[in-house]
């Protein structure tokens, strides 16, 4: 089971990881895993478990192009992020890193702390009350990137961009 971590609208990259905790400001880059939402939601980093799911409001990830924001989420093992709308650069960065993203508004349906199960292959999210929610179908491009574990491994493996004819 995965836990739902719910956030509001317009979560920006400064909230996800403030600039002061940028990897190049840290002694050890691995320490980045201590800082997602360090100020905005201090209980997140110490408690999040691999596979947990973030459910956000509109415009999730707005703000700067800092890739260490989604990277911090990847390092702590966030299994998917679900929001009605993602900020563009965050969407790109998270997709490139291989974090599954689903564009759908579930802020009403899901509660913070709720336990769910997500089947990435079918896109079906099953809640602890047995409710099943079908997430929007990811594009081939996204699935190719997830399967390779990110766009870098994809490029290394195939020598082309996803969706491109080699």
């Amino acid at each position: 089971m995965a836990r739902i971590w719910k956030f509001g609208s317009d979560v920006n990259t400064d909230q996800i990881v403030p600039g002061r905790y940028a990897p190049y400001m840290l002694k050890n880059e691995d320490d980045l895993r201590k800082y997602p939402f360090v100020e905005a939601r201090p209980d997140f980093a110490p408690n999040v478990q691999p596979g947990d799911i973030i459910v956000g409001g509109n415009n999730f990830g707005c703000g700067s192009s800092r890739e260490y924001a989604p990277l911090a989420l990847k390092l702590v093992g966030v299994g998917a992020i679900i929001a009605p709308l993602f900020a563009r650069i965050f969407f790109r960065n998270a997709l490139n890193l291989g974090i599954p993203l689903f564009t759908i508004d579930l802020t009403e349906q899901l509660q913070d702390g709720q336990q769910v199960q997500l089947d990435l292959a079918t896109g079906v999210l099953t809640t602890d009350t047995g409710e099943q929610i079908q997430l929007p179908e990811p594009s081939l491009f996204m699935r190719e990137v997830w399967q390779a574990g990110g766009i870098v491994p994809f490029y290394r493996q195939y020598g082309r961009f996803p969706g491109e004819v080699a």
Binding site: S65, R66, E67, R92, I151, V152, Y155, F161
Partner: peptide
Amino acid sequence: TGMGSTDMALILATGRTW
């Protein structure tokens, strides 16, 4: 347009992006 580190590294390597 602004991009993250992975995109920029891919561009530096290939001169291309998606």
